[in-house]
């Protein structure tokens, strides 16, 4: 089991319900494979530093979870074929830092 953090940018124009089902699907996938959800931070609408797919705004959300490397592979597969996802990134977190509470999940201010 390893600690990961998923950074997810979805299109800001889509419905909250559509986004909620996507998030629910991701969380279900993590839990089905024996992972545990740790923390969540939703930044909301935020200006992108540069346009992605001709869009200047995105909805930012970050989730921390534990899981096997195969879970990450499956997440990468599913998110890369989801239309509403502008960009995503799964980052492995240093376990020691997390256990010592030295890597708090940053709660950004939504704009």
């Amino acid at each position: 089991m390893r600690d990961y953090e998923l950074g997810l940018i979805t299109e800001s124009s889509i419905d909250d319900e559509v986004r909620a089902t996507l998030v629910a699907r991701i969380e279900q996938l993590v839990q089905d494979r024996g992972g545990k959800l740790l923390e969540r931070a939703v930044w909301g609408r935020k200006m992108l530093a540069y346009p992605i797919n001709h869009k200047t705004e995105g909805h930012y959300a970050f989730t921390r979870f534990t899981g096997e490397p195969s879970t990450v592979a499956e997440l990468n597969r599913i998110l890369s074929i989801s239309d509403e996802v502008l960009r995503f990134k799964v980052v492995r977190l240093p376990e020691a830092a997390l256990a010592a509470g030295k890597a708090p999940l940053l709660k950004g201010t939504a704009r």
Binding site: G7, I9, L48, A49, Y50, I52, G58, R87, V91
Partner: peptide, 11 residues
């Protein structure tokens, strides 16, 4: 570089 990928920082 990671922040740039997620459009948090500009290239």
């Amino acid at each position: 570089k990671l922040a740039r990928e997620l459009a948090l920082l500009p290239y």
